[in-house]
Design a binder for these strands. Structure first.
Length: 698
RNA sequence: GGGCCCGUAGCUCAGCGGUGAGAGCAGGGGACUCAUACUCCCUUGGUCGUAGGUUCGAAUCCUACCGGGCCUACCA
């Protein structure tokens, strides 16, 4: 059967946020999308794969401020890191843009104008907490305080985790901005909203009948949003905000979720412009585009809402092409649980690449992805077993055990009788292709492995090693058997090429040249030379996985620094305790447990320590509170501690102390140390062995 | 609080109304020795989360509950 008619397919993966590094969870989507794209190209279709960094919003602004540099410096650095990570996993975008681009600003303006023209934009006052010190409006999660109902301390601005009460951040007792430590105040701000209710009819029609969404997603939307009037969508944020100022509304910026999806189009424009084309060839509805472009968005289930309601509403209003498919995947768990930094299962792409082969993870993900919304599990034992058994034991082994008999002679001139094995697998090609098309890569790999099983059974039955020993009389027969085996192997690699591009390339080097078309699975190759066999896939060594997990842990327990030796090494340190320890600094007034609870003491790990040359007493420390939480803290311990010796050790910090501008920079906390009692030293506190960064002192 | 998804052999999963519940891996037994201790043959193993219900018939549909994951909680 011939490949279906030529298609033009534009594929996007969700834009990763420029506030964090790529991890194994992200990679599910980028690998899934990459496989789909490579499959389409192998089938002879025109398929472009676009993505970009999502750069705007409060989080980036806050981060840049904390690091004392500009937002564009922050996002440039993260972009480089993202690109390196994707390249490492053979994720091959045709273009990787940025939402912070001229193209995106212009396109946001175009879509915005169409929303204005349709009369969908309205202004409305919004009451919001404002941080007077940081000078920004605060989302609820940036406010913490004491629950007004049960008085649990340190609760988020919208609900209490202890008693379940929900409230407005303004109701909190002692509200505190997590950005600056300042007390927020309620302020009123003008926001711009897009009315969605006028598009309710369109959205119902599109979500329920277009075929773009899986039935369960359509049902979810119908049951949760489309039954009642759609609320207006708040699409602006008041200055200061890192993003694009709205042209006809000075002082207002597009909310990050407005300009992010437009980034898909902006990436198209940049890609097309570099080739003398235009984005309209892909996004313009109708027109002279032939055939019309398909738009496939791959996203995680967490952002379903934006891609199935807001985004189609924007496209519809602007008269642009609606998504052909919104393909939604679940989340990644590791060993059956949510990824955990403490367990070493929150693994960054870069960390993985330092330990293991990206092809192994691509294969494992492919074997797990079924195209539906379920979460997938990366079971590390299963990962090693599956990759080693399938890829190495079954597939590569086919070539490994037979190719060398063809090194001198090359493939037989005509394809021998193989009992119908090649034809059988060729016939399976349609089913395998259908599975790829549905993003049911798990089914595809199952079908492919079945072919590999049949091929190995063939080799076993023919016993070519006996033919090799039987002498010249059996040479022709040996060559035939090896020709069959190598053909079956290459056929399997054609099917796996979307998943394993490097294996495909190396197989091409071994025999037959580069694999360029799915149709190469339909006809055996004959009469061609066979290169000396080289290993095509590495086994996954469980020890490497263990090393990876260990490297991913924020603080390997075995490497936890031991507490520094006490100043007195006497056999009976008790005897040297000062007689009047409290004389120099009498006890402070009594306080309540609630008073104590206001001070958030955390275990932190010192990541970097350096002298501040101009300062008499200060060291500049960078500490980690676990995960991505980093703080710069100036500590008055210079002269008592060698900076180099501090790196890696655990200390206690006051984590919610209001940041303080010091002569040498902003200090975002305080490292707790003991001093006084008539002695001169300053002594850092260390938790017992096993404590982890981020633990709170209670 | 609301909602979504999942719960099938030790592990990872398929099957999603109809002949006696399947695959791969792991385990057990044999064979082979070409191959990255690899492959081939045979084989052990399941109250299909629990309890009800619908049906001639349910792992498959419905309800409740239990367990796991996730999204939300008036910026949805």
């Amino acid at each position: 059967m011939a490949v279906s008619p030529h298609r033009r397919i534009l594929v996007t993966a969700a834009l990763p946020y420029a506030n964090g590094h790529i991890h194994l969870g992200h990679l599910v989507e980028y690998v899934q999308t990459d496989i789909f794209v490579r499959f389409q190209r192998l089938r002879g279709h025109e398929c472009i794969y676009l993505c970009a960094d999502d750069t705007h919003g409060t989080a980036i602004m806050i981060r840049a401020r904390a690091e004392g540099r500009g937002e564009r410096e922050v996002i440039a650095e993260m972009r480089a890191a993202h690109l390196a990570d994707f390249a490492g996993f053979h994720v091959g975008f045709d273009h990787y843009g940025s939402t912070d681009s001229a193209a995106n600003r212009r396109l946001c303006g175009e879509i915005w104008r169409s929303l204005r023209d349709r009369g969908l934009v309205v202004n409305r006052e919004v009451q919001q907490l404002f941080d007077p010190k940081a000078g920004v409006f605060l989302a609820d999660r940036f406010v913490r305080g004491t629950c007004p109902r049960c008085h649990a301390a340190d609760q988020y601005g919208d609900a209490c985790e202890k008693c379940g009460a929900t409230y407005s951040p303004a109701d909190l007792v002692d509200p505190v901005s997590t950005l600056s430590g300042a007390t927020p105040e309620v302020r009123s701000a003008d926001h711009l909203f897009v009315q969605l209710e006028p598009l309710q009819g369109f959205l119902r029609e599109w979500t329920q009948t277009s075929g773009s969404l899986a039935p369960q997603v359509a049902n979810y939307l119908a049951g949760n949003f489309l039954g009642e009037p759609l609320r207006d969508w708040d699409v602006s944020r008041p200055a200061p905000y890192f993003g694009f100022e709205i042209p006809d509304a000075p002082g207002h910026f597009w909310y990050v979720w407005f300009d992010a999806p437009v980034g898909y189009i902006a990436a198209t424009e940049e890609w097309a412009a570099a080739r003398g084309g235009t984005w309209r060839a892909w996004w313009q509805r109708g027109g002279a585009n032939a055939p019309p472009a398909e738009i496939h968005h791959f996203i995680g289930k967490d952002i379903t809402y934006f891609h199935t309601l807001f985004w189609p509403a924007m496209l519809e209003t602007a008269g642009l092409t609606l998504p052909t498919k919104v393909r939604i995947h679940g989340f990644l768990t590791v060993n059956g649980e949510k990824m955990s930094k403490a367990r070493g299962t929150f693994v960054l792409a870069r960390t993985y690449l330092e330990h293991l082969d990206p092809a192994a993870l691509r294969y494992y993900y492919a074997a797990k992805l079924s195209g539906d919304i379920d979460d997938i599990d990366l079971n590390l034992d299963d990962f090693a077993a599956k990759v080693n058994s399938d890829l190495v034991g079954k597939v590569v082994n086919l070539a490994s055990r037979t190719a060398r008999w063809l090194e001198g002679t090359g493939l037989a001139a005509t394809y021998p009788d193989d009992g119908g094995l090649f034809a059988r697998a060729a016939a399976d090609g349609d089913g395998i292709a259908a599975a790829y098309e549905d993003c049911d890569f798990a089914r595809a790999t199952r079908l492919i492995m079945a072919a590999a099983d049949r091929a190995n059974a063939y080799v076993d039955a023919e016993q070519p090693w006996k033919l090799a020993k039987a002498g010249p009389d059996s040479a022709a027969r040996l060559r035939d058997v090896a020709t069959v085996a190598v053909n079956l192997f290459r056929q399997i690699v054609v099917y796996l090429a979307p998943v394993l591009p490097t294996l495909a390339a190396e197989t091409g080097d071994l025999v037959g040249g580069p694999i360029r078309s799915w149709d190469e699975s339909r006809e055996p190759i004959v009469g061609l030379p066979v290169a000396p066999f080289k290993p095509l896939a590495a086994r996954v060594d469980p020890a490497r996985i263990a090393a990876l997990v260990e490297a991913a842990k924020p603080s390997p327990p075995v490497a936890a620094p031991t507490p520094p030796a006490p100043p007195s090494t006497g056999a009976a340190p008790m005897m040297s305790d000062p007689a009047e320890p409290l004389a120099a600094e009498p006890l402070a007034a009594q306080c309540t447990i609630d008073d104590f609870a206001k001070v958030d003491l955390r275990v932190a790990r010192i990541l970097a320590a350096e002298e501040v040359p101009e300062a008499k007493k200060l060291l500049r420390l960078t500490v980690s509170l676990g995960g991505e939480e980093r703080r710069t803290v100036f500590a008055g311990i210079k002269g008592f501690h060698d900076p180099a010796a501090l790196v890696g050790r655990l200390v206690v910090v006051v984590a919610n102390l209001a940041p303080r501008q010091m002569k040498f920079g902003l200090s975002e906390g305080m490292v707790v140390a003991a001093s006084g009692a008539g002695a001169t030293g300053v002594y850092l506190l260390s938790p017992d062995s096993g404590a982890l960064p981020g633990m709170r002192l209670h």
